[in-house]
Each structure stands twice: as structure tokens, then as C-alpha cells.
């Protein structure tokens, strides 16, 4: 029975992971460098929502506002910092240093503003429900629902909208996309917004799921997100969804066997295995490796 419960929790973790890793991998595809500050984006999204929640608004409203604000922040940071370096053709190696620096700056700004104390949302914890073999809170059900809606949204975006198709085109061949008259700056900013929005929302639901949070909680989750996008093949949104599912299930189910304080380390074990055996991800035949 405990394993079935663990699978239920795994689905919740997978939902949270899917939210941020799809955005992260989309942004990687378009910009061609990884956002090392993703953990800080999650944290900041959680704090934005916490402030909105603090003035008395419903948590789900706060979540959407938090996501929007994080999306705006992602665009502002891109315009203010990253875009300038990209324009100067900074090598990826140095872009990564910039992102690493940005992650520490954001994390410490968060610490300076909100302090190191644990915070939590004003929300009723929701009653536990038995759905089939799973035992989940109503809150966790909503989290799964949000992720499903978001994944469908991303699918619609990529398949049916002009900007989504432009994102895919830039991901496949940036030079060609530019020559085809795609406004790459606009698409890049839009991608940052989507990625920031999803990260912000993910931060809120992650905080809800673990009940309390503090400035480093997003960064602590960061390598689990990286594991999900690498398993799915870096730069591939649908791969990231599957990667999130695998990593989410493995970490939670393994917690039934091992000390749960090490459960995230299982994500690392999978990441290493994938890098050693199939560095391009487990589905892709070739990737940006």
C-alpha cells in the first residue's frame, strides 16, 4: 500500500517538476544556454505569491499573480543582463558564469529582503482523499490538475500558435529562423516570460507541497529539475514532461525504501546514468549534446 501512496506522491512531484522543466528546456532551446538561476526563479515566485497571499487573496490567485510577476522578472533580467551579453556573442562558457552569478545574486537578494526564516501560505491544508489506490490531499490534486492544464497549454502553444512555431524554429536552427524573418528578440523575450511564469507557478506549488519554504528551497530543488530535462533530452519540451514523470516517480518511490532525506539524490543517480549511457536523453536519437 505504501508503494501505491508513494506513486501518488510521485505524480505530485512529477507535476511540479514538469511545470518548471518544460519552461526551462524551452528557454534552453531558444537561447542555447541553460538558466542556472532557475532555482532562484522558483523561490522568488513563491515569495511573490506569499506577499499576495499575505494581503488576503486566495492562494490560487496568489499563485497566478506570483507566476506573472516572475515571468515579468525573467523578461526584465533578460533585457537588462543576458541579452546584452548575447548581443556581444559571448561564448556559452561565459554565459554560464553569468547565469551562475545571477543565481547567487537572486538567492542573496531574496535572503536580504525576506530573511532566512521559514514561511508558509495561509491556506487550509485540504482534506485527504482516497482516489483509487492513492491517498492525496485536495491541494495535491489541484497541483496535478494545474500541471496537466499547463502541459496542454504548452502543447497548444507549440503546435497551433505562430509564436510557438517560431520558438520551435529558433530551437532547431536559430540562423535559419532569423533569416526567415522571425523577430528573434521578441520570441526570446516571450520564451523567457513563459519560462519565468511556469517557474513561478512551480515555486508556489512546490512550497505548498512541502508546506514551508525559505530562500534556498528553490535552489535545493534545482538539480532535480536538471535531471528531468537531461533525461528528457535537453531542449525538448515533450521529453522534459516524460523526464519529469520519471524523476518524480523514482524520487518518491525510492523514499519508500531509503532514508527520505536522500530521495533527491536518486535523481542525481539517474542523471549520471543517462549522461554515461545516453547523453542526448533517453528518447532522442540526436540532440544538442
Amino acid at each position: 500500500m505504501i508503494y501505491l501512496h508513494a506513486i501518488g506522491f510521485g505524480l505530485v512531484t512529477a507535476s511540479i517538476l514538469a511545470l518548471c522543466s518544460v519552461g526551462l528546456t524551452l528557454q534552453f532551446g531558444v537561447t542555447n544556454y541553460i538558466n542556472f538561476a532557475i532555482g532562484a526563479y522558483l523561490t522568488i515566485g513563491a515569495y511573490f505569491a506569499w506577499m499576495v497571499n499575505g494581503i488576503g487573496l486566495n492562494i490560487w490567485v496568489a499563485m497566478v499573480v506570483g507566476g506573472l510577476l516572475t515571468g515579468v522578472m525573467a523578461v526584465v533580467l533578460n533585457l537588462g543582463i543576458m541579452q546584452n551579453f548575447v548581443r556581444r556573442d559571448f561564448p556559452v562558457l561565459f554565459m554560464l558564469i553569468v547565469m551562475f552569478g545571477l543565481s547567487l545574486i537572486l538567492q542573496n537578494v531574496t535572503l536580504a529582503i525576506w530573511g532566512a526564516n521559514f514561511q508558509n501560505y495561509k491556506v487550509s491544508s485540504g482534506q485527504e482523499l482516497s482516489i483509487g489506490p492513492f491517498l492525496l490531499t485536495s491541494q495535491q490534486l489541484v497541483i496535478i490538475g494545474i500541471a496537466v492544464v499547463a502541459m496542454l497549454g504548452v502543447h497548444v502553444l507549440l503546435t497551433y500558435t505562430k509564436v510557438g512555431k517560431a520558438m520551435r524554429a529558433m530551437s532547431d536552427n536559430p540562423t535559419l529562423a532569423r533569416n526567415c524573418g522571425i523577430d528573434t528578440d521578441l520570441v526570446t523575450n516571450f520564451t523567457w516570460f513563459i519560462s519565468g511564469f511556469l517557474a513561478g507557478v512551480a515555486g508556489v506549488v512546490l512550497a505548498l507541497n512541502i508546506t514551508s519554504f525559505q530562500p534556498s528551497f528553490g535552489s535545493d530543488f534545482e538539480f532535480v529539475i536538471f535531471a528531468a530535462i537531461i533525461v528528457g533530452g535537453i531542449g525538448r519540451p515533450y521529453g522534459a514532461m516524460v523526464g519529469a514523470l520519471i524523476i518524480g516517480l523514482v524520487t518518491e518511490v525510492s523514499a519508500a525504501f531509503i532514508d527520505s532525506s536522500y530521495k533527491n539524490d536518486m535523481a542525481f543517480a539517474i542523471l549520471v546514468l543517462v549522461l554515461l549511457l545516453r547523453p542526448q536523453g533517453i528518447f532522442a536519437t540526436e540532440g544538442k549534446a
Partner: peptide, 26 residues
């Protein structure tokens, strides 16, 4: 062995960041 295979520098960075987190954790 994991990070320096002929992969993009992103992987190198991801692996080392993750190793850092894991070792710190353990």
C-alpha cells in the same frame, strides 16, 4: 568521467552543480 566527456559545457556545469549539491547533502 561524467562531466568531461565530449559534451556541451552546459552538461559539464549541470553535472558539477549537481555533484556539489549531493556531496554537500551527504
Amino acid at each position: 568521467v561524467i562531466a568531461l566527456k565530449r559534451l556541451r559545457s552546459d552538461y559539464m556545469a549541470i553535472v558539477t552543480v549537481s555533484v556539489g549539491a549531493i556531496v554537500y547533502d551527504i
